[in-house]
Design a protein around this nucleic acid. Structure first.
Ligand code: FES
Ligand code: FES
Lengths: 140, 140
DNA sequence: GTATATTCCTATTAAAACGATAGGAATACC
DNA sequence: GGTATTCCTATCGTTTTAATAGGAATATAC
């Protein structure tokens, strides 16, 4: 239950990889690493990771440079990148049930008890994801 | 992200339905309701719900009686039925990633930072689901 | 200015999970 | 015996997931 798609797992592994590069030389301007290099180091299918990084770039979480010596790097410090941003960039908002925002979808009418329960679950998940940054993750 | 399969949504709606019947006449021995009746009241495909209730019965959460006037009822008071039991009965343990228990699956070796993050997510979800009972849900 | 390494864009495919349906056997009540 | 129910097993269509493929655009190196 609640298994996380590989896309998100790979995306987070890639960002952790980039964050660790930055952490290795503090203060220095962050260095780009090519998609293929990350893929090899992390054991992720290379062409697949390209698409994932493109999505992270579209969300403003990484920056990219094309051409030789191009690659990706974090768009901001790991300490300012919340895990929920990453998850939402790759898979959209946490939404246990489709009727989260609607009211009166099911038989219970406008005050649906199960829906309140699912809203609580969303808050629990969002609370965890929102309380952790990429930096917290690379520090264990 | 983290959308809950209809099987689980339906299962919880059905149990909420049964719990509300019990709550309507406190003290009285709980009365069976037929699968088809629950399905109609809750707008759930009837034959599909049969399978779901069978699964809940196998997990010991509901009791069934066959034949005319048969049906389903809760196997124990709603206040003693934790939501995590229900979720696990229908979809198995909360397991964000396959490597939760294994060690050293990915490139990081025995101490994988992303894995620690996912373990934390599991604990957040389990914490929520384990802290609520069916009774909490029907009381809003 | 040509070769090379990279991101970028779009399409396709294979496999798995999901959601539901179907037929009919077993059982219990009346 | 007739009827209402649970129970068992199989099947099916759709959607999602995970990955692959081809090649265009772009920047550097020499
Ligand atoms: S409105 Fe979604 S379960 Fe009731
Ligand atoms: S062991 Fe699962 S991500 Fe590292």
């Amino acid at each position: 239950m609640f298994s996380v798609p590989t896309k998100t797992q790979y995306g987070i592994r890639a960002l952790v990889h980039l964050a660790r590069i930055d952490a290795a030389s503090p203060g220095a301007p962050s260095e780009s690493e090519a998609s293929a290099g990350i893929a090899k180091a992390e054991g992720i299918p290379s062409r697949y990771l390209e698409g994932i990084l493109a999505q992270l770039k579209a969300a403003g979480l990484v920056l990219s440079e094309r051409g030789k010596h191009g690659g990706y790097r974090l768009a901001k410090p790991a300490s300012e990148m919340r895990m929920i941003e990453i998850v939402e960039a790759l898979e959209g908002e946490v939404k246990p049930v489709g009727c989260l925002d609607d009211s009166g979808v099911c038989a219970q009418g406008d005050c649906c008890l199960p829906r309140i329960f699912w809203v609580g679950l969303k808050e629990a998940i969002d609370g965890y994801l929102g309380s952790r940054t990429l930096r917290d993750v690379i520090e264990g």
